[in-house]
Simulated scan of single mutants.
Amino acid sequence: MATQSPAAARMLPHLRLPAALGLVLLSLSGCSMVSSRASAPSAMASPPMEDLPARPADPLAAFAARAQLGQEELVGSPPVPVRVVRTYNSGGGRPCRQLLLGAMATGRQALYCEATPGQWEAVRPLLQNGPPIRP
């Protein structure tokens, strides 16, 4: 067992009190956070659906819902040429459309699948570097 110097022995009681007080305050503040969350769950809950603003309609989703393979239209504002380059069913059985936005050589791809009957949503493709798009 190590022996303490007389100066350290005199300071030890003074160091123990602030450390103990700090631990007590820290534990009490954690309890107050837990109790405030437990007593007010409605403050943490999301707002009801009718209070949320309506999402603007996605013109690409509307195009994907009605377009057939090879169909091309000017979509959006400013208008951009969009073409359906591929249609397929996902692994889960949902109908999907691969779209080409812009020109064949410089355009970008977008993928839309039917979320619920009549409602289409943008999805992330599983394969990022797939085969090139053919018209």
Rank of each mutant, 00 (worst) to 15 (best):
M33R: 13
S36Y: 14
G93R: 01
G70T: 01
W120S: 00
A40H: 15
L17A: 14
Y88G: 05
L74V: 07
L17T: 14
S39T: 11
R124S: 09
G76C: 02
V75S: 01
A19L: 15
T116A: 09
V85Q: 03
R108N: 12
D58Y: 00
A115Q: 13
R10K: 12
P41M: 06
G102V: 01
G30L: 09
L101Q: 02
V82W: 00
L28P: 02
P18H: 05
L21H: 06
E73R: 06
R97Y: 00
L127P: 04
G22E: 03
S39E: 13
S90C: 08
Q98V: 09
A45W: 08
G91Q: 12
M104F: 02
P48S: 08
A62Q: 14
A7S: 10
V123H: 00
V24C: 04
V75I: 08
A54M: 11
S77G: 09
Q98H: 09
V80R: 07
M49F: 14
P18M: 06
P78A: 06
A57V: 14
L74H: 06
T116D: 06
R66K: 15
P117T: 05
A65I: 06
R66N: 13
L26H: 07
A45P: 03
P47I: 09
M33W: 12
P56V: 04
P56W: 03
R55H: 11
T87E: 12
A64M: 02
M1L: 13
G93D: 01
M44K: 15
R108G: 13
M49E: 14
G30K: 07
P125V: 03
G22Y: 04
A103T: 07
M1C: 13
A57C: 13
Q119P: 05
R97N: 03
Y88D: 06
M49I: 14
V34H: 11
L111C: 04
P125H: 04
V24N: 02
L12E: 12
M104G: 07
S39Y: 11
T116E: 04
M104D: 07
M1G: 15
G92N: 13
C96K: 01
P81W: 01
Q119F: 08
V80T: 10
Q128L: 13
E72D: 07
S35I: 11
P6G: 10
